[in-house]
Design a binder for these strands. Structure first.
Length: 1017
RNA sequence: GGGCGUAUAGCUCAGCGGGAGAGCACUUCGUUGACAUCGAAGGGGUCACUGGUUCAAUCCCAGUUACGCCCACCA
């Protein structure tokens, strides 16, 4: 079963994927031999997703930890699964339906549409999990979870309880008062027509304009506007009949409720409390709004006066709430100017009555009013903006400024022209965009569900602060704290269909005192029908319940049936009382459900074995980009629901970028597809590359060159194993690694011990790159470059005992390489493990991870091999520098060797001879002419080069070495001559320096003697 | 505006209080029976700048400069 000449990654990967799966190698608890458990929750990729570099990185790290713990005998679970990804999935399916010429989702209806989504999921939803398998991810795929599993409309194959868990959590949190419904200003995505959370908004700087408009004072009043400089000198004084407003969003003027100025702003003091006119809309119905004071306006910015549009701006919202300013909603769900409701004339009249205090201030009524002038209704918000600007300018209410520009006449002569133009500042402004839709987000005043994060945030902060959960690298804890300490209510309702429908039903309120229900609705939050009907019965008494799909289905103004449900009235009329009930049509934010991933996948709320065993989980491995989205929310949710932290450690890794450091993105076209890379270089190479570059807390710039390098590393391991195989040094069942007699074998055994310690300690600290680099240096640098080379004369020589021992040790060393490399490079190592022996007890994936360490290190052998290696290196170096042909063999002469050096030489002579390409050894007492001397510890060696050596070359070589030593000696003696150093530095440091100095001086002496000899030639 | 981070070899980056490192690239040599997806030998760095702490600073502290990221409502 000789190994093929080269490693065929593709076929080995295909083979082992199947074998591992068939043998259940990755199942929870596989290979467990101790009580400790180890559990990782995969960050669930979107079902719509395909594996990108970030996934490859993230999952490679998880797999390394998982495989490592499994080999160490932990009861291991790596829980896989996918996220239903509300918006993303709905978007994909809608697009697909459109392409296929189907009806849109609204025409199709909710039921039908969801069927389509499930169909899509069945067809394409498994892609990314299959891709994880290609990477070699050793998840327990038999436990694959899905955040929508167990949903009422889920088809076969999507059983599970995740949906139940989500609904149950909602109900519990609702009952505890942690979730509430409220009318608040939220970020609205006009493309998807849904609310989104703050985190789903990306603020980007775009080129914008700031317009300056005049809001005329009511009734033609005037005041003296005075502007002063810093010293109090008057710089401007004029009579004005208007107040000047600056805005970047003129279309929202239609919904202004007031103009605010700073209470300290003396310029406007004369007109505070007066009314001014919004200069748009039909002239006969211009609305007058009050000029108020508020702390919010900055007197030094713009004109110092701010229009307050509470329903379309977050700042204005706060001001409006403080000042009880009406908030008029102007737009529909698509971001177009509203066209519902009464005519503008009617609405404006009512609004004016409210502003004048003649009509009661009723928030609900105000929210329903449509103050969009008739000629603006139905316009897109950006068209409306243009129209507002044009109308105001045409009417002469734009603030004008003088502007000088250069014009050219017909003859090309330039001249300066001063003209009066509308004051429009071109300036960059921050604009919010939907992270998925990429359209401009609109603040909208709507009824939404919120998690009262203030009430659940503290345990999540405490858990990290007191170290129960550790975030690595530590600096990310700051980011975590900062966000949590400034947390806003979390809007969790989405006006989508794909997701967990909110388990709340509405019915008419019974809260009436006079036989007429008030405007409130009654809420019924229930996890199941039984509970719902219990609640209904309790609330309404003996009535018939009419379940509707939506409020619209009631098909009646709500007041009508509210009136009818009064039992007393019904009794009087002798009519049966029918109560219409409808369910909230909205679904939950996807992150609400993924926030429950740890307990949800383990079977909560049932007390499953898995939950008891694996929760809290050990480590979460994730990118910093979802610390807020996911990590913080999992912390809050798990603590709120089961009062336990979800994981002990959160390891936050960097983002994978392209080789220039740019974020990989489809639009930039710099995306490296991990699957293509796997095909070209093999999964092991991709994995090793990512691991070697996984230094904590920095971006990871990936280049294919690097991957090719690590592919070569795999080849190197393959070839080393082939070498061992050719020399009958594989698969030898060596139960105990000790008992070697030969120095080189003792030495390599110790090196293996060191490497195991290095790998383990690196992985314990999540220093993946250290583990990879330690293995790389050991396998390539120590085993291949030195041990294999040193083995050759022993394996091919006549000393049967040496040969036999070396075969055993080499076989063991190769096995250890395979074991230690397996977590990072699972395929090639498993392949070699199988190929080198028929009698392995277990697959490599389940082979026991070694525990040996320093006891394998033989200090004597170490010293001796260091001596041998440095001798070989010195000879090689001299050979090249002196231009000795690589193939030429030279005799070696020993000179002034002490016993230790002589012994080391004798014991390792065949190896030295071979690696340094020597031919014959003799001992001399004088350096012959034409020979170069090489100082070694405890002696010197001479190489006769030819009859005439190149004197100049030798002089150069010697003086170069001496210069280096001189520098070292100067440095060391400088330190040692400093009494403060000797007095204050630790003794071992001082001793180290002394020894270093002595060695350098000894070598220096030998070199200068050599130099004298050469000079004498 | 606030916060965080990064400046080390030509490139990409490790390291981090007592000897400046790796990979790639570069130079020279090499068909040595594992491997040319290789081997051997090399060249290359005031560890951004300025101060401070220390016996000792690339490393710790402060400041400066440059770049990057995150958060944020200046109309």
């Amino acid at each position: 079963m000789a190994l093929e000449k080269t490693f065929d990654a593709a076929s080995a990967e295909a083979k082992w994927r199947v074998v591992w799966e068939e043998e259940g190698a990755f199942k929870a608890g596989a290979n467990a031999s101790r009580d400790e458990t180890f559990c990782i929750m995969i960050p669930p990729p979107n079902v719509t997703g395909v594996l990108h570099m970030g996934h490859a990185f993230n999952n490679t790290l998880q797999d390394i930890l998982t495989r490592w713990h499994r080999m160490r005998g932990f009861d291991t679970l790596w829980q896989p699964g996918t996220d239903h990804a509300g918006i993303a999935t709905q978007m994909v399916v809608e697009r697909q339906l459109a392409e296929a010429g189907n009806d849109g989702r609204r025409e199709m209806g909710r039921e039908k549409f969801l069927e389509k989504v499930w169909e899509w999921k069945a067809q394409s939803g498994g892609t990314i999990i299959e891709q994880l398998k290609r990477l070699g991810a050793s998840c327990d795929y038999s436990r694959e979870a899905f955040t929508m599993s167990g949903a009422p409309n889920a088809p076969e194959g999507n059983e599970g309880n995740f949906h139940d868990a989500v609904i149950r959590v909602f109900v519990e949190m609702y009952n505890k008062g942690l979730i509430y419904r409220g009318k608040r200003l939220v970020n609205w995505d006009p493309h998807f027509e849904t609310a989104i959370s703050d985190l789903e908004v990306e603020n980007k700087e775009v080129a914008g304009h700031m317009w300056h408009f005049k809001y005329p004072l009511a009734g033609g009043q005037t005041y003296t506007y005075v502007e002063k400089d810093a010293d109090g000198n008057i710089t401007l004084e004029e009579e004005r009949d208007y107040i000047s407003i600056a805005t970047t969003r003129p279309e929202t003027m239609l919904g202004d409720g007031a103009v605010a100025v700073s209470p300290k702003d003396e310029r406007y003091a004369p007109i505070v409390g007066k009314l001014c006119e919004i200069p748009v809309g039909p002239k006969e119905h211009r609305r007058l709004i009050p000029i108020i004071t508020d702390e919010y306006p900055d007197p030094d910015f713009g004109s110092g006066a701010v229009k307050i549009t509470g329903a379309h701006d977050f700042n204005d919202y706060q001001v409006a709430k403080r000042g009880k300013i009406p908030m008029y909603s102007l737009m529909d769900t698509k971001g177009a100017m509203r066209s519902d409701g009464k005519s503008y004339a009617e609405e404006a009249t009512i609004a004016q009555a409210i502003a004048n205090g003649d009509q009661e201030f009723d928030e609900a009524m105000i929210a329903a009013m449509n103050l969009v002038p008739d000629e603006y209704r139905g316009l897109d918000r950006f068209e409306a903006r243009d129209k507002v600007v044009a109308d105001i300018t045409a009417e002469g209410n734009a603030v004008m400024i003088e502007q000088t520009r250069t014009v050219k006449d017909e003859d090309g002569n330039e001249s300066q022209v001063t003209e009066t133009v509308p004051y429009v500042e071109n300036k960059p402004i921050m604009q919010p965009f939907g992270d998925r839709s990429k359209v401009v987000i609109e603040p909208m005043l709507t009824d939404q569900w919120f998690v009262d994060t203030d009430k659940i945030v503290q345990p999540a902060i405490d858990a990290v602060r007191n170290g129960e959960t550790q975030i690595l690298p530590e600096r990310d804890t700051k980011v975590y704290f900062h966000w949590l300490e400034n947390i806003e209510p979390w809007c969790i309702s989405r006006q989508l269909w794909w997701g967990h429908q909110i388990p709340v039903w509405y019915g008419p309120s019974m809260q009436s005192t006079d036989g007429i229900a008030n405007q409130e609705l009654a809420f019924f939050c229930a996890a199941d029908e039984e509970s719902l009907f219990d609640q209904l019965a309790e609330y309404y008494g003996e009535v018939s319940i009419l379940q509707l799909n939506s409020r619209e289905q009631a098909n009646e103004p709500i007041e009508n049936f509210r009136f009818a449900i009064n039992k007393g009235i019904a009794d009087k009329l002798g009519e049966a009382l029918i109560v219409p009930i409808w369910r909230d049509p909205d679904v939950l934010d996807t992150w609400f459900s993924s926030g429950l991933w740890p307990i949800g996948t383990l079977g909560w709320p049932e007390e499953t074995e898995a939950l008891k065993k694996y929760f809290p989980t050990n480590v979460l491995i994730t990118g910093f980009d979802i610390i807020f989205f996911w990590v913080a929310r999992m912390m809050m949710m798990q603590l709120a629901v089961v009062d336990q932290k979800p994981f002990h450690t959160v390891y936050v890794h960097a983002l994978v970028r392209d080789e220039k450091g740019k974020k990989m993105s489809k639009s930039l076209g710099n995306v490296l597809d991990p699957l293509e890379l796997i095909e070209e270089y093999g999964a092991d190479a991709v994995r090793f590359t990512l691991t070697a570059m996984a230094a904590m807390g920095r971006d990871l710039k990936l280049s294919t060159q690097r991957i090719a390098g690590y592919r070569n590393f795999g080849t190197k391991l393959w070839n080393a194993t082939r070498f061992a195989e050719m020399n009958d040094a594989v698969g030898i069942d060596v139960s105990q690694e000790g008992s070697a007699k030969y120095t080189v074998n003792k030495w390599i055994i110790g090196e293996v011990g060191r490497t195991r310690i290095a790998v383990d300690s690196a992985l314990e600290q999540y220093r993946f790159n250290d583990a990879a680099n330690a293995l790389y240096a050991f396998v390539w640098g120590t085993v291949c470059d030195w041990y294999v080379e040193l083995c050759k004369p022993l394996l091919q020589g006549d000393d049967a005992a040496a040969k036999a021992e070396t075969q055993k040790v080499l076989s063991w060393v190769i096995d250890q390489c395979l074991i230690l490399m397996h977590p990072i490079m699972p395929f090639i190592t498993e392949e070699l493990w199988a190929a080198t022996s028929d009698t392995r007890e277990k697959r490599l994936v389940h082979t026991d991870w070694p525990t040996y360490g320093t006891e394998l290190i033989d200090a004597e052998a170490d010293r001796e091999m260091n001596w041998v290696v440095s001798l070989i290196e010195s000879i090689r170096s001299v050979r090249t520098e002196m231009g000795v042909p690589a193939g030429a063999k030279l005799p070696l002469m020993l000179l002034e060797m002490d016993d230790v050096a002589q012994g080391a030489f004798d014991r390792n002579q065949v190896m030295i001879a071979r690696l340094a390409r020597l031919d014959g050894v003799s001992t001399i007492s004088d350096v012959p002419k034409g020979a170069v001397t090489i100082p070694v510890e405890g002696g010197q060696v001479c190489l006769p080069l030819s009859d005439v050596i190149d004197v100049d070359a030798e002089k150069a070589r010697l003086s170069k070495s001496m210069d280096k030593l001189d520098k070292e000696i100067k440095q060391l003696s400088g330190k040692l001559n400093n009494p403060k150093f000797v007095a204050n530095a630790p003794e071992e440091v001082v001793n180290e320096n002394r020894e270093g100095l002595a060695a350098a001086e000894a070598e220096r002496a030998k070199l200068s003697a050599a130099m004298e000899r050469v000079a004498a030639l």
